[in-house]
Amino acid sequence: MSDAIIPALPRPAPPRRLGHAGFWLAAAAAAAILILALRGMGSEYAYFAATFVLQYVVLATAWNILGGYAGYVNFGAAAFFAAGAYTTVAVGKAFGLGLLPCIGIAAMVGGALGLGTGILTLRLRGAYFAIATLCLSVVLQTFIVNWSYVGGSRGAYILRPRDVPFGFDSYGGYLCAVVLVLAAAAIAIARSIEVSRLGLGLAALRDDEAAAEAAGVPTLRLKLIATSISGAMMAVAGAPLPYLGSYIEPTSAFGLSYAVNAIAMPLIGGTASWAGPLIGAVLLSSLQQAATVTISSAANLLIVGVVLVVFVCVAPRGIIGLFRRRR
């Protein structure tokens, strides 16, 4: 039965011609199938693995809005991701709020952080911007390490609520559904930016900032919008993290594996369209899940590094570029 529905999945190849309604129907169908399939399996591990993959879909899509569309390489993805995770910890502890409001607040924190980064680094181009974001990551980590309210360097424990909302069979299932919705929303945002005036302006300033200004593009404002949206979405990707593992500490939350994955996934998939980060995230994070289970967690990072290097050398336009002729 499911075989008949599978063609409705949003195939990455020619989605530009799909209307908005068609796109949303396809996305909803894909999401529903995924949830039903996971429920059919009924294993907590399946939920965990799916949540892990989807979380990277959000992170990679968010990174690509600034990195792929505007051409600003953010090495500090882990900082935004961890900011989201620690927002959940701090807000949850202070006000006893559940996951959903925490995600909303994480979006605001990440957006503000993105805006701040943008204002601080707006005059920097290329490598300087990348290095500044890397520094930002270290500064933020230092503050978290020294902030004992959220556990400092020892980390913090988060207890999953006992009662599972909305009739889900387990909290893991609920978490997975939430992250799935976030992933679909992230892709929808990326896709609408791509076809909008904002996307056109970002593409122009990516290629030549002075020429874009001369053509009437308010480059500064567009960059700030891009850093804010990208930052907000990266924080949203991190917000469910404490519930996923029940324990969070700075070294892993700020781990460079988030930073490298956020860059590697869009570059491997292709940075020109929303489908690139999606493909890259699904491939690379599934590969890592498999490697973690079968080999070791160090080996899976090695795989990411090797795949990234091979791809940027051999296929600079990513997997999408391999299949799609240049426009």
Binding site: V73, F75, A130, V260, I263, L301, L302, G305, V306, P316
Partner: peptide
């Protein structure tokens, strides 16, 4: 293609060295 791809290349090399 130095800008983004080149940065990502060295980022990947860094990872390979460290994990190696």
């Amino acid at each position: 293609d130095e800008a983004i791809q080149g940065l990502a290349f060295f980022f990947g090399v860094m990872f390979i060295v460290e994990v190696g």
